[in-house]
Amino acid sequence: MNDRIARAALTRLFDSQDSTGWALVQALGAYAALRVATGAQPPHTFRHISDEDLNDGLRRWAQRLPDVDAERDLATIERLGGGFLIPGDEHWPAGLDDLPDAPYGLWYVGNITQGIPAIQRMAALTGSRDSTNYGAAVTGEMAYGLAQRGVCIISGLAYGIDAHAHRGALSGFTGDGPATIAVAAGGLDRVYPSGNADLAAAIRANGLIVSEQPPGSAPTRHRFLQRNRIIAALAGVTCVVEARWRSGALNAANHAESLARHVAAVPGSVHSANSAGCHRLLKEGTAALVSDAAELAELLAS
Rank of each mutant, 00 (worst) to 15 (best):
T113P: 04
I116K: 02
Q41Y: 09
L96D: 00
W107V: 08
R129M: 12
Q63S: 09
A70S: 01
L74G: 06
Q114N: 05
V36K: 08
L34V: 04
G110W: 07
P87W: 04
W61S: 10
Q41W: 13
Q26L: 10
D73K: 04
A94C: 00
P100C: 06
D67V: 10
A94D: 03
N55S: 14
V36E: 11
E78C: 13
R35P: 07
S131F: 08
Q63W: 09
P103K: 02
A124E: 06
Q114T: 01
H91S: 05
S131D: 09
L34S: 03
T126V: 15
L54P: 14
G82P: 01
T45I: 15
A27G: 11
L106C: 02
L74E: 11
S128P: 12
A40Y: 09
V68S: 06
A62E: 14
W92E: 03
L125W: 09
P87C: 10
D56P: 07
A94M: 00
A118G: 05
D97Q: 06
R64K: 03
I112M: 10
A40K: 12
Y31N: 08
L80H: 11
Q63T: 12
E78A: 15
A102M: 08
A102T: 04
P100A: 11
R35M: 13
L96P: 01
G105Y: 07
H91R: 00
F84D: 08
R79K: 12
R60G: 09
Q120L: 04
R72Q: 08
L85N: 00
P43N: 15
M122I: 05
V25D: 03
R35Q: 11
D56H: 13
L80A: 11
D98E: 13
G105N: 08
D130S: 10
L58E: 11
A27F: 10
R129A: 12
E90Y: 01
G115A: 03
L65K: 12
T126Q: 13
L99S: 05
G110K: 09
D67G: 12
A70Y: 03
L96W: 00
R47F: 15
P93A: 01
D73C: 10
G57W: 13
S131A: 14
I112Q: 02
Y31P: 06
A32W: 10
P87V: 07
Y31D: 13
L34R: 02
